[in-house]
Design a protein around this nucleic acid. Structure first.
Lengths: 127, 127
DNA sequence: AATGCTATTTATAAAGT
DNA sequence: TACTTTATAAATAGCAT
């Protein structure tokens, strides 16, 4: 979208990169919001700007609730990255490699987060 | 974008809702991917389908790494929801209410996740 | 339920201010 | 350095399979 067809690779010019980040971040939040409302589903989005500042969005519930819902899923219910068309996004090779790393990290973070659902820790929900 | 201008509210027809979810989920993943590459930033996206199945995307690093990066941020560095234009997305009233809930949940989950960075628990990173 | 097809609406890259 | 405008690329709603 724009005057020219954009190649998907890192924008080297720092100013352009930050301008593009700002525009596309807003677009992504809007799309995430629309998805959560239209389809009545939980959506969580976390983005770090080029300068390290964080932006988040969550639809339906708090972002912590959605993160907890994810990390506590049993293994066989966990989604795969790039359910759409992996080849369209990046090489299958890289995707598979990332999957292995994910597997390890998930075990660790799930273990840490188990306390999140213990009786002593309750979370509120956005209606 | 389509034959008619769509109102952003829950799609009541179940079939239409699932078709829309499928299409827009792929669009959202693509946008998140493009943002992570163009701007070289961490992006994490979690979505639950109407039937409860999860889809995730993460750019640059594993989704667990990005979630951990978020929950471990000091309070003053945490982003606000809807940094763009809250009024454009939903009522400010609702956004403010959600912010209060988030505040409480964050305190809880940050406390639980402090162990994540302890010496005994190390995470791998995607290069 | 899933995929392909257009007419339209949206998003946004550059240029302008 | 940031907003506004404009031309163009993309996304997608409703239909047809």
């Amino acid at each position: 979208m724009g005057r020219v067809k954009l190649q998907i690779k890192k924008i080297e010019n720092t100013t352009n990169r930050q301008v593009t980040f700002s525009k596309r971040r807003n677009g992504l939040i809007k799309k995430a919001y629309e998805l959560s409302v239209l389809c009545d589903v939980d959506v969580a989005l976390i983005m770090f700007s080029p300068s390290g500042r964080v932006s988040i969005f969550s639809g339906n519930r708090s972002i912590e609730d959605i993160m907890a819902r994810y990390v506590n899923l049993p293994e066989h219910e966990r989604g795969r990255i790039y359910e759409g068309d992996p080849a369209e996004i990046m090489s299958l090779c890289e995707a598979e490699y990332r999957e292995q790393i994910l597997e390890e990290n998930l075990k660790q973070i799930r273990h840490v987060l188990q306390d999140y659902n213990s009786p002593g820790v309750q979370t509120s929900q956005v209606p």
